Computed example of a mutant assay.
Amino acid sequence: MNSSESLVVVEHDTCHECDLRVAIPPLQVNQKALCPRCGFLLAAKRRNALNRMLAFALTALIFLALSLPFHFISFKSSGLENEIKMLDSVTILISSGYGFLAVIEVITVLLIPMLVLISLMYVTLSLKLGRMPWQGREIMALIYRLLPWNMAEIFLVGTLVSLVKIISLADIHLGPSFFAFILFSISMTATLLHIDKRSFNQAFASCAAAANDNHSSAIITASVPHAPVQPSLSIQRTWALIITSILLYIPANILPIMNTRLLGQDDPSTIIGGVLLLWHHGSYPIAMVIFVASVMVPIIKILVLIWLNYSVQTGAFRYAKQRIRWYRLAEFVGRWSMIDIFVVIILASLVQLGNAMSIVPGSATFAFAAVVIVTMLAAMSFEPKLIYNDKVGYEPR
């Protein structure tokens, strides 16, 4: 072959959702590759993706660091005032006997975002310097697993909802850390939007080829291993998690999720009770947000997972496109139910004015947080490939 000929790159990938083997041509900037069977996004090429990802990740880390040392929110009522920083909520929850909520906040709002950003910066910087990052593929696999548990933007929305709940009872002041956290959430989202699995796999392959000084081949074939599908194990595990979430959902809605102590008297509130109270006070948008995220989303997600799991167990093959869309919706919206938990965390940390007024988490917070976590695990356990069980292993010629 003439050395002046351009290098031909032949790549195949396996669709994560329907298991179809797809030949992906070289992409131009701003082009995307979609699975021809289920429409799953296989790849997307963006201009200067590594540079932008590195810049956004560094910016996000800086704003995350700035959101910790300064005051986050201050609360003033009847001459009494309380001011908290981001980490104050953790110590308050632990000292009040709600360490479980403190662990959720630290892991999903601080540790996972920080780990994802630092890992991405290490991998992208190594690739920009033309070096194969140590355990690069394993680090990226870990990042992909952690991404669903990154809840920084959900915590921000939960904070805004909690402020709306108490703005009529007291004066609220937002500190520098609050605005730093907003900028962190924006930068974090921008970073994640530039992640593309195929681009990273290509960069790893290029580094490996350069390291081996393998320039003799004119054709390079990149392929992702075809993972076997194990229907019975996936279905049984998903059923177990669905049943667990149903059992947890009952106490999560019957028991109080929050208890307000005003002048020595307790006023417990369930999820539905809080929605009705917000509606009664005219906070219709916030009431709808809480109702959809905390009541409707868990119910819909459980029903969708029941339908999907039953359909693959019985070998149904109709309405595959509709089922894959419902699966994506259930997987996407499930974590947003954590808004109510973050609302309780913020209010329980901020409203601590002794006998005059204080808010403590109710027993339903444990059950509801478990519902969100278990339904997320159920969606992850479900194998969307089984929706196309009559076509698994098909590869176009």
Rank of each mutant, 00 (worst) to 15 (best):
C15N: 07
S245R: 03
I118Q: 05
Q31K: 11
V9L: 08
L329C: 03
I73Q: 01
L386D: 06
L115P: 01
Q352N: 15
L68K: 08
I167M: 08
S78N: 11
Q202T: 04
P113F: 07
T260W: 06
L58P: 01
I300Q: 04
F366N: 05
I243W: 04
V8D: 02
L255I: 07
L169K: 10
Q230I: 14
L42R: 06
S234L: 03
A43Y: 04
R131G: 00
I346T: 12
I341G: 06
M151E: 11
L156D: 01
S89W: 01
E81C: 10
I94N: 10
I92H: 05
Y122A: 13
R145E: 04
F155W: 11
A320D: 10
V360W: 01
T365H: 06
V333P: 01
Y327I: 03
S232E: 14
V106M: 12
A180N: 09
L247P: 01
K128N: 10
L350T: 13
A102G: 15
R261V: 13
V10E: 08
P231Y: 03
Y310M: 15
I242Q: 06
D196G: 11
V275M: 08
Y284D: 03
K321G: 13
W336D: 06
S232Q: 13
T238V: 12
V229R: 04
L169D: 14
N51L: 13
L146Q: 10
R46F: 04
I219L: 11
A356K: 07
A209P: 02
S177K: 00
R323C: 01
A190R: 08
R21P: 00
I243N: 02
I387S: 02
G393P: 04
S199G: 14
V164C: 05
G273L: 05
V360P: 00
I94P: 00
V292D: 05
A364L: 03
L93P: 00
S74K: 05
D213L: 12
L248F: 09
H71L: 15
L27M: 04
G158S: 00
E138P: 07
L263T: 11
L41D: 12
Q31Y: 09
R198M: 14
L277F: 07
Q313H: 12
K391N: 03
H215I: 09
A379N: 15
I104P: 00
S3N: 10
L110P: 02
R237M: 09
I286L: 07
I219F: 10
E383S: 15
I300G: 09
D267I: 14
L353G: 02
G79I: 06
R335S: 12
V10N: 08
N309E: 00
A378G: 05
I339H: 07
E138T: 13
Q322E: 13
F317S: 13
A205H: 05
N2V: 09
N51Y: 07
M258V: 15
A170N: 09
M258G: 11
N48I: 08
L117C: 03
K321W: 07
V343W: 00
S6I: 14
K45F: 06
A210D: 09
A49N: 08
P384D: 08
Q265Y: 02
G315S: 14
A348I: 11
D267K: 10
W149P: 04
L127M: 10
N214E: 03
H215D: 14
W239Q: 03
L255F: 08
K197T: 14
I242L: 07
L329R: 02
